[in-house]
Simulated assay, not measured.
Amino acid sequence: MSIATRVGLIALAALTAPVSAQEHADVPGSSLQNSPPGAPIAPEWAYPQSTTHTQVGPPPGFHRESRVETIPIGVFEAQADVGAAVAPGAASFANGTYTIRSAGYNVWYTRDEFRFLFRKMSGDVSMAADIAYPSGGFGDHKALLVIRQSLADDAKEAFVALHGDGMIHLAQRPEPGKRISDMEYRIGSRGGLPGGKSPDSLVTLHAKRIGIEKKGDQFTLWVSEQGEPMHQYGAPITLHVTAPFYVGIGFASHLPGVAETATLSNLVLENRAGRVR
């Protein structure tokens, strides 16, 4: 083996050797400023947008098989780490509150990573919950109410979400592997999201209860901003999912290797439309 070949192999080994999150974060221009020491390393594309990093979608064909736990929790039959984030998630249920701890780079683009508590259903669905982030965390993390065709990371789905910064949205993936599209509402957003910072006077309108209704192939977003009766927000989307499909609640930290916490309480889940409340 030539000296040049040996030098090349040594350089390649240095580039591919495992490093800790802290070592990576110490590199100038690294996108891991949100990762604590010891956090698992994810692909560079998976880290959130920052002043030093441009977030992009997964490479074509990138998938991870979801980790499924057939352990009932509350009204749900089982739970899963959809997309198998590099840091495993967990969930518990007590006194009417679901506590979900999850990492996951996003629920967006062409595939998802999030903790999902689910049951199989068919027909119409009404679902709603109060959402809170008791430990704060990354502003763009999101709790979700989800109706999806399968547990694959790129499944067809419709969902509503409440972001840590206050944005709510109704989103869909129209076919497996397609990019998410959505309708976004920045109620009380504190900034850092596309569209700019909302006026400070709107911060008190940060919604805490959201809902989703499936009526046939029509999906609608429901919101209570300040404890008033829930009301439909915006126009519906049209999406066909084949029964049985998966219905449940979830959470993604928006940080691929860092688990954060959301709570969902006062859950309504009924197998008919017109019952979001």
Rank of each mutant, 00 (worst) to 15 (best):
L117D: 07
I210D: 00
I131D: 13
D153A: 09
I212C: 04
M121T: 13
W108E: 10
V203S: 04
H163M: 09
V203H: 04
L144E: 07
G164Q: 07
A158V: 15
F159K: 15
F159Y: 15
V125G: 03
V146L: 14
D140E: 10
E157R: 13
G136Q: 08
R179T: 04
R190P: 00
Y133G: 05
R179V: 02
Q172W: 15
G188T: 10
D124W: 07
I131S: 12
G139A: 00
A171C: 08
H163R: 15
S198I: 11
L202H: 11
Q172V: 04
I210T: 02
I210E: 04
P174G: 07
A143S: 11
G188F: 04
P134R: 04
A155N: 08
D112V: 02
P134Y: 04
D112P: 02
F118Y: 15
H169Q: 12
M167D: 09
V146I: 14
P134V: 01
K142R: 12
S126F: 07
P134C: 01
D200Q: 05
H163P: 00
K208R: 13
R173A: 03
M167T: 14
D165F: 13
G177C: 05
D154T: 01
L170K: 06
E113H: 08
L202D: 15
W108F: 08
Y185D: 14
R190L: 03
A128R: 08
V125E: 07
F118E: 06
N106M: 00
K208N: 09
D124R: 02
G166I: 11
